[in-house]
Design a protein around this nucleic acid. Structure first.
Lengths: 330, 330
DNA sequence: CGGCTACCTCGTAGATGGTCGCCATGCTCT
DNA sequence: AGAGCATGGCGACCATCTACGAGGTAGCCG
C-alpha cells in the first residue's frame, strides 16, 4: 500500500497536508484537490494501525457476549453492528461462552488493542473493568448490569417475569412452575422473582420454589428442567420459561410427552426463534434485542465522542404476546 | 499502560530484552526473571497496535458473512471463533447483509488494518480480492466459492439437492417443487440443479421449472415462495427448500394452510434451527456449519503461518435425516 | 499610507510503542 | 589462544498524527 509520503510526493505537498485532508483540518481547496488526485492515482488508504498507534484509539469496538449461537444475542449483535458501521467503527465479536476466563482475556485484548470502547453482556457479574476505566475506555453494559457504575441498557426483568406469569394466570392456568437460568446470573434470578411474586400470593402452590428449576440458558437446560417438572406430584399445569432457548427445550419435551400448549401452558421470556408452530398457543414476552444493540452502540459512541454525563440506565420495554387460546376447561 | 521502556527500566535491562521475553527469543533465565517481575509489578501488557504496525500483521482475522442472524452462519462463526481464539487471534465480525458494497468496505478495512487473514462467505460472487492477494493476505472462501483461486471449504450443493429430492421421492411424494435463493448465488443455483436432476428424468412434472421459485434466503422468502407454489395447478405434493430460513417460512405457510408434513412433503437443506416440532416429519439435509468454520479457520491459520501449497478445496459431507413418516397413501 | 498584529496555511520534525538487524561483549570448548 | 556461540544493547524502522513555528496575507489603527 502506498504511504502518506508517497501521496505527498505525488501531490507535491507535505505528508502533514495529506493527513489534514483526512482529518478535517482546514486545507486550501487547491492543495486538497492535488491530494485527492494523488490518492486516487495511488489507490491510497490510510493505514489504520499506524493511525491507532498515534491516536491511541482504534476505530473498533468490542462486543462481548456470552453466547453467539443464541438468536437473542445475535439480534443484539446485529443492532450493534448496524450502528457501529454507520459511525465508521468495526465490531470485534467476543464470544465468552459464559466463561469469566475467556471474558477477562477479551477485555484485556480490548485494552491492548486500544479499542475505542466495549459493549458488554457480562458472564458472571464480576468482571474486572478497572483497567478499561482507568484508561477511560467507555464501556456500556447491555442485558446484564455490572459491579461498576456504567451506562446500561437493560430490561425490567422482574416485570417480564410478572407479565409472563400473569398471562398464564389470565388464561386460566393455576399451578405455574418456572424454569430459569443459573442462579448467579442476575437476569435469571430477577425473572424468577417476578414469577414468584405472582405465584406466591395466589397461594395456588404451597411452596412455589419446589416448582422452580435453575438450569443452563440453553436448549438442553430447558429440556432437563421440563422433564423434572413433569415428573412432579402435584404436577404443574403451566410453566414460565425465562429464556428463549430454554423455551425451545421445554416445548420439545412437552411435545414429546404429548402435552403441547394449550394442554400445558407455556410462557416464554424472549422471542422463540424461527417458530414453525403457527396457531400461537404459547405466550411470549418479546424482548427488544435489536433495539438493545442499537441503543447500546449509540450510547457507546456518544461516550467515545467525549460525552461525560453521569452514567445512564436505559430500561427498554418488553411486549407481551399472549397465547391465542387459554387453558383447557378444568 | 506501562510501556516496554518502563518495564525495561524497572528490570534494569534494555527494551529489546523485554521484547525478546515476549517473543520466545532466548534470554538468560536471570534476566527473564527480572523482566517477569517488572511486568507483574507494572501490570504491563504489550500494545498490540504498536506490535502490528512494526510486524505489519495484526493478530486479527476478519470473518465476512452475509447474514449474522442466520443460525447457519452463526454456527460457522462459532467454529471460526473457537479455533481462532485457541491460536491467539481475535475475530472481527463483518456482516454484509448480502450487500457487495458493505462487503467491499469490509475487505478494505481488513487491508487497512493489516489483518492477518480473511474468511469470506461471499455475497455476490464478484468480490475484488486483488488487493488482499497483492499483499499476500491469506483468504479462505467458505460456503461459497469465489472468482479467485483460493482455499475453499464448501459443500457438494448439487448432491445436497439430489439427496433432498430423493428422500421425498423415497417417501412416496411425486410432484416435487423447489424453493431456492437468488439465482446469482451459486449455492442456490447448484442446489436447485440437484433437485432438477432428480425431478426431470422421473417425468412426474412436465416442466419442472414451473415448480421452481427463486426467492431471498430468509424466512419471508420461504413464505412468499411457498404461498405461490400452493396456488399452482397442478399443485405440488412436496417441496425441496434449499436453505434453513426459507424452510422455516415454508413450514409456517404450510402449517397455516393446514398442510403440515407429512400431508405435504418437505425436505430442507440446512438444519432447522431450534425446532419445537418433534415427530420429525420433515426431512433435513444437515450441513456441517460449525465444522466448516473450524476447517476454514485452521486452513487460514496454516496460511498465515506461511504454508504456500497450491490452493485446496475441502468438500465437507452433508448428512441426510429422512422424515420419520412418508407420504399419505395416494 | 505604512506598520503592526492576527490569522490562516503548510512544512518540519518528533512522538507513538514495539520489533529486529547488527554488533560488541564475554564465555566456552577445542 | 582462537573460533564460535549465546546474550543483550543500540538504533533504525513501521505509518501516521500533531505541536510548533515559519511565512504570507489581510485588516486595522495611527
Amino acid at each position: 500500500m502506498a504511504t502518506i509520503y508517497e501521496v505527498a510526493a505525488a501531490a507535491g505537498v507535505s505528508p502533514a497536508t495529506v493527513s489534514r485532508v483526512y482529518n478535517g483540518v482546514p486545507v486550501s481547496a487547491e492543495k486538497a484537490e492535488l491530494v485527492r488526485a494523488a490518492v486516487a492515482e495511488l489507490r491510497f488508504t490510510p493505514n489504520r494501525t499506524a493511525r491507532s498507534l498515534r491516536r491511541k484509539n482504534a476505530e473498533v469496538i468490542a462486543l462481548v457476549i456470552p453466547d453467539i449461537e443464541n438468536p437473542y444475542f445475535t439480534s443484539l449483535a446485529r443492532g450493534v453492528e448496524d450502528v457501529a458501521q454507520e459511525a465508521g467503527y468495526s465490531v470485534v465479536l467476543c464470544n465468552t461462552d459464559e466463561d469469566p476466563g475467556k471474558e477477562a482475556r477479551y477485555l484485556e485484548i480490548a485494552v491492548a488493542e486500544n479499542m475505542a470502547g466495549v459493549i458488554l453482556a457480562e458472564a458472571d457479574g464480576r468482571a474486572d473493568l478497572s483497567e478499561l476505566i482507568a484508561r477511560s475506555r467507555p464501556v456500556v453494559a447491555v442485558d446484564r448490569s455490572t459491579l461498576f457504575d456504567l451506562d446500561s441498557v437493560i430490561l425490567d426483568n422482574r416485570a417480564a417475569g410478572v407479565a409472563a406469569a400473569r398471562t398464564l394466570i389470565n388464561s386460566g392456568y393455576r399451578r405455574l412452575a418456572c424454569i430459569t437460568g443459573p442462579a448467579e446470573i442476575d437476569t435469571a434470578e430477577e425473572r424468577a422473582e417476578g414469577w414468584r411474586s405472582v405465584v406466591s400470593p395466589s397461594g395456588s402452590l404451597e411452596r412455589p420454589d419446589d416448582h422452580l428449576r435453575y438450569s443452563s440458558f440453553r436448549v438442553e437446560g430447558g429440556r432437563d428442567a421440563m422433564a423434572e417438572l413433569l415428573a412432579l406430584d402435584p404436577a404443574p399445569d403451566a410453566v414460565v420459561v425465562t429464556n428463549n432457548l430454554m423455551g425451545v427445550g421445554a416445548l420439545q419435551v412437552l411435545s414429546e410427552a404429548g402435552r403441547v400448549p394449550p394442554a400445558f401452558g407455556v410462557a416464554v421470556i424472549g422471542d422463540l426463534p424461527f417458530t414453525t408452530l403457527t396457531p400461537n398457543a404459547t405466550s411470549i414476552v418479546r424482548l427488544p434485542a435489536r433495539d438493545m444493540g442499537t441503543t447500546a452502540a449509540r450510547m457507546l459512541i456518544e461516550r467515545i465522542n467525549g460525552d461525560t454525563e453521569p452514567a445512564r440506565t436505559v430500561i427498554l420495554p418488553h411486549e407481551v404476546v399472549a397465547a391465542a387460546s387459554g387453558a383447557p376447561a378444568l
